[in-house]
Amino acid sequence: MVSQKVTVTNEQGMHMRPASVMSQKMTTFTSDVKIVFNGNTYDCKSVMMLMSACIKCGAEIEIQCDGPDEAEALKAAVEMVESGLGD
């Protein structure tokens, strides 16, 4: 398993659009992709779970990837969050 901490920078946090962009991209990887936030773990391939985490701008999250393409998945996830999730 690989993991990395990253800060959410887009203004409105993990709302509908960023969450759907994120989950769609993550679904293309075979590995499990999870977000750890406030002590809870959320499935990053699920838009509903991402939204239910109520992650706001400025929040620090940890992304964990586990599986055959974990390095690529982690790299993609971190890049997405850092670039503001298309907002």
């Binding site: 509908m16 759907s20 499935d43 699920s46 838009v47 509903m48």
Partner: peptide
């Protein structure tokens, strides 16, 4: 249109 597109994302979600 975004409101309805949101409905599509939600219902397509594996957890839902």
């Amino acid at each position: 249109a975004e409101i309805l597109e949101g409905h599509l994302f939600m219902i397509s979600d594996p957890t839902m």
